[in-house]
Design a binder for these strands. Sequence first.
RNA 1: GCCGAUAUAGUUUAGUGGUAAAACAAACCCUUGGUAAGGGUUAGACUGUGGGUUCGAUUCCCACUGUCGGCUCCA
Length: 580
Amino acid sequence: MSDINLENLRHSCAHLLAAAVKQLWPGTHNAIGPAIDNGFYQDFDFGKVKISEQDFPKIEKKMRELLTAWERFTFKEVSLEEAEELFKENPYKVELAREFAKQGRKLMTNDPGNFLDLCKMGHVENPSKELKNFKLLSIAGAYWRGNEKNKMLTRIYGTAFPKKEELDKYLWQQEEAKKRDHRILGEKLDLFAFSELVGRGLPLFTPKGTLLRELLNSFSQELRLKKGFQKVWVPHIAKNDLYKMSGHWDKFGDELFLVKSQETKDQMVLKPMNCPHHQQIYASKPRSYRDLPIKYLETTTIYRDEKAGELIGLSRVRSATQDDSHSFCMPEQIETVYDELIDITKTFFDRLGMKYRARISFRDPKQPKKYLGDVALWEKAQAILLNIAKKNKLDYFIAEGEAAFYGPKIDFMVSDALGREWQLATPQLDFVQPKRFGLVYTDKEGKDQTPVMIHFALMGSIERFLSVYIEHTAGAFPLWLSPTQVRVLPLADRHHDYTKDVVSKLQKEGIRTEWDFENKTIGAKIRESTLQKVPYMVIIGDKEVEAEQCSVRTREGKDLGKKKLYEFIKDLKGQIEKFQ
RNA sequence: GCCGAUAUAGUUUAGUGGUAAAACAAACCCUUGGUAAGGGUUAGACUGUGGGUUCGAUUCCCACUGUCGGCUCCA
């Protein structure tokens, strides 16, 4: 890594962008231009001018032109009056200057040579030398100060690196991420589809995609069934009264629901979560402390009215299938139940080859109104979670303010092959809902007590998990998850009978097998199977028929040589069993 | 929802104020090929939907729908 401060570099680059734009379009006002995680942005008020990404080459050219004269940033402290005079054309700068003056902060200006700006400190020493490796990336609208009541400004995103190689690597990585985009792979690998007629945010799963969903789901469920969870089933609609009782109605109102309630009594809505339903199963008969913990499991679809502009492929949808479960236990059983859930989570992600760390989400002590339930209970629960994380030796960190409104939780932050982090499995404690629903169990003394509920979904939503997992694997799923595990490729027509024989024997053993009888060369068939990420290809020609063998090749291009079919089946089964 | 971009064959794209071109995929034919693309032929699009301007629009304008990028990261 270079010794140049990345933030300073990028922030300086935002100045350069502002300078270039103001020269190209006089009268444009620049607002803020900070460094961000992957680069920088600069907001502009272009007035009536409309610009697009097609203007980028022109802007970049102007940036390079200006840069040659940028020897160093000179700073000067100014009074509010001076600032108001200097930036009188630019209402955004004036607003900021007044605000900062009010807060008692020093007002600074800087000038790299030909572009005066109001700015905090933090720039590179020698712009003309250090700022060379930049690129403008995209353009978008953004509200002034992030508030939708304010004016919409034009935001130009870009990035900059100390070295050209670093910039090139970043751009290459972006390209890689694009290739892995689950929306593209989903179509290429024939996993899911959308229909304008069905509606946006409502994914349809093809046979291959459905297989993938079901394999992941049964793995998720099995892990819990082994720990004594029991499957339940509930309908997908309910009266809105259910959510008034649970507290979701007060919290989210009508916005959460995909079918809007008319506020009439007994109005039906689509369920946006499963916990209230599951609690009604618990409530269906008297419970004794001897019955606890009671652990329900159900993979079922929920429906939420996500904002239209936020729907993205499978990662943000309106119909999401949760591998959900709810455990009801006595307070002193929390730790035991939680330990099981942590164990399940570890097994699941270890087996999928994904790294993770835990985020313990506490309430924000500064905003008590955001949460239901009494503070003492929260404190107690948070202490329990922290202890569990320590005991299970989780790699954890604490995030205040990330808790659900009904209780604290542990989120598993799972990282993918490109190093991006996703919040997936979330066991969360709930002291509030059982109380609201009046759930009870009879304790040893014969008195009614309120159980604690623990929400837990491993994948969260299968759709969102798939979006992460498809990009993690780039569509090359492990053998046990591959919709097609083996494809048998005959060289010529005369090998078709033998091929059919091999395919049916593999299928009989439960191996998901296809053949490729197309009139193409073996090279083309191999290419096609490789692009479809089929783990194993079996090639059948004269030699194989003669020796009653099959030639095996992996999608990575490795030649495993000739084998007897039973040997190959044994290999495959051995590999698959490792995951059961 | 808001801002911007965008919509042409199954897919990826070209193109024009006078009803559209190609590649891949498909079907058929030739070829029967040994580890990431063999060759040919044919078929396939009322240019997203609905309006408007015009003698005439796929092309220009408006609305709708879908898709994409954003809407937290403070001078």
